[in-house]
Every structure is written in C-alpha cells, then in structure tokens.
Computed example of a mutant assay.
Amino acid sequence: MTRTRASTTWTVATEPFDSPVAAALWRAYYTEVSDRWYLLHEGRRTDPGELEGEIAAATGTELAPPKGQLLVARYGGEPAGSAGVRLLDTETAELKRVFVAEPMRGRGGGPVLVRAVEDVARTLGAVRIVLDTRHDLVEARALYARLGYSETAPHNDEPYAEHWFTKELRGLD
C-alpha cells in the first residue's frame, strides 16, 4: 500500500528499501554523515573503499514491511529526501536515516518526512518513537526538538550515537 502525504510541493510515499531511488538517497546520506564525521575527527573525507564497504553492509532490510518502512520525499516530483521507521518492540518504533538533499534544505522537507514517519509508526502500532543521532548533526537535533522530541537516556549502544530522543505518539495528529 502506498501512503502519500503532501505539503505544498513536497510529497512523501513509501518506497522499497532496495529500489534505485532508495539506494541513491542512502548513498548521498551516508556520504554526507560519514564525511562530516571524518572531517571533524580526522580532518579528511571518507576513504572511498570504506564508504563502499559501509554502504554494502547497511542493506536497509530493517526498513522492510511488515516491521519497517522506508519513505521517500519528492520535491516537485524529484527524489529529495528519505526517512525510515522500524519497530523495536510492539509499542516502540525507531526513526532512521532522516535525510534531505542539500539543495532542497530549508524548504520544509525535514518536518514533512518526520511527520510522515510518525504516521507510519502509528499504523505499525507504535505509541512512542525513538531515535539516536550524533553531536555534530546539530541541524537534526534542532529539527527533532522543534517537532516535540525530548532528549532521553540512551536506548541503544550504537557506536556513533551521542544523543537519544523520544516522542509519544498517542493523541497526536
């Protein structure tokens, strides 16, 4: 089933995690977050071989139905961002891989994507959603705070996670 949510020129719809569109957005996402980390900590961009290995290892299968879903945002019909959700347990969903391509930032795509993921999480039965992010991803942390996410204690031991957030989904539209 395809779910669509529109806001002005943004549309968001489900996408197979292994589609060419998903792969291109995942590559752009991973390249950006990896390069940001390496530039901050080692003063260099990601080694191309390491990038390819990490992309190959992160298949995205956790974003496949019935316990997950990948969403792609399009701006003016063109793929411009993505976000995923997966169930951690019967009541808790996790927000994953939120990304808006750099040229499309500042046009409201991030909030549209996150709200669409929240809607999908509710349809999967979740009553809360959690996420983790890094300290240097200040734009992401600001977005989550604006959208009602609260910083919490760690809910996982991901090696690059430095901030954890949660949001209750009950009674929200």
Results as ranks from 00 to 15, higher is better:
residue 85 V to A: 03
residue 41 H to A: 12
residue 119 D to A: 15
residue 85 V to G: 01
residue 158 E to A: 14
residue 19 S to A: 13
residue 131 L to I: 04
residue 77 G to D: 06
residue 59 T to I: 00
residue 143 L to I: 13
residue 74 R to Q: 13
residue 134 R to P: 03
residue 12 V to E: 06
residue 83 A to G: 07
residue 41 H to W: 03
residue 35 D to V: 05
residue 75 Y to L: 04
residue 92 T to H: 08
residue 119 D to I: 01
residue 146 R to Q: 10
residue 51 L to I: 10
residue 153 A to I: 11
residue 100 V to N: 11
residue 128 R to A: 12
residue 9 T to I: 11
residue 159 P to C: 09
residue 96 K to P: 00
residue 44 R to T: 13
residue 22 A to P: 02
residue 136 D to H: 11
residue 50 E to N: 12
residue 168 E to V: 01
residue 46 T to S: 13
residue 142 A to D: 12
residue 100 V to C: 10
residue 47 D to K: 02
residue 113 L to G: 09
residue 53 G to F: 10
residue 47 D to G: 05
residue 87 L to E: 04
residue 104 M to H: 15
residue 24 A to P: 09
residue 171 G to I: 00
residue 159 P to K: 10
residue 113 L to C: 02
residue 41 H to G: 10
residue 33 V to M: 10
residue 41 H to T: 05
residue 66 P to F: 00
residue 31 T to M: 04
residue 88 L to S: 02
residue 158 E to M: 04
residue 96 K to E: 04
residue 104 M to W: 13
residue 1 M to E: 09
residue 110 G to V: 13
residue 20 P to H: 04
residue 22 A to K: 10
residue 73 A to G: 14
residue 110 G to N: 07
residue 89 D to L: 03
residue 31 T to V: 07
residue 69 Q to E: 13
residue 12 V to R: 10
residue 110 G to T: 07
residue 169 L to E: 02
residue 54 E to L: 15
residue 130 V to F: 01
residue 73 A to E: 03
residue 157 D to I: 01
residue 17 F to T: 00
residue 16 P to Y: 12
residue 102 E to I: 09
residue 105 R to L: 08
residue 99 F to N: 05
residue 109 G to R: 09
residue 167 K to Y: 12
residue 48 P to T: 12
residue 71 L to V: 06
residue 74 R to G: 06
residue 56 A to C: 02
residue 33 V to Y: 01
residue 54 E to V: 11
residue 127 V to T: 15
residue 57 A to V: 11
residue 139 E to Q: 12
residue 59 T to C: 04
residue 111 P to W: 12
residue 1 M to R: 10
residue 115 R to H: 14
residue 89 D to P: 02
residue 145 A to K: 15
residue 61 T to N: 03
residue 155 H to T: 09
residue 97 R to D: 06
residue 157 D to S: 13
residue 40 L to W: 15
residue 117 V to R: 00
residue 9 T to C: 10
residue 129 I to N: 00
residue 47 D to V: 04
residue 129 I to G: 03
residue 108 G to W: 08
residue 39 L to K: 15
residue 39 L to Q: 13
residue 91 E to F: 13
residue 153 A to M: 05
residue 79 P to L: 08
residue 44 R to S: 10
residue 95 L to Q: 03
residue 40 L to K: 14
residue 36 R to H: 14
residue 95 L to V: 01
residue 112 V to R: 01
residue 66 P to C: 10
residue 17 F to R: 06
residue 89 D to M: 02
residue 134 R to M: 14
residue 155 H to W: 07
residue 52 E to L: 11
residue 61 T to G: 13
residue 93 A to F: 04
residue 71 L to P: 08
residue 149 Y to P: 05
residue 123 T to I: 11
residue 121 A to S: 09
residue 135 H to G: 12
residue 99 F to R: 08
residue 39 L to T: 04
residue 44 R to F: 02
residue 123 T to A: 06
residue 49 G to N: 15
residue 45 R to Y: 04
residue 24 A to F: 12
residue 3 R to H: 03
residue 114 V to C: 09
residue 89 D to R: 05
residue 136 D to M: 12
residue 114 V to R: 02
residue 138 V to A: 14
residue 152 T to S: 12
residue 63 L to M: 14
residue 154 P to W: 11
residue 84 G to A: 06
residue 102 E to V: 10
residue 2 T to F: 02
residue 85 V to Y: 07
residue 122 R to T: 09
residue 144 Y to M: 11
residue 114 V to S: 07
residue 13 A to M: 05
residue 110 G to C: 03
residue 95 L to A: 06
residue 152 T to V: 14
residue 7 S to W: 10
residue 10 W to P: 00
residue 156 N to S: 14
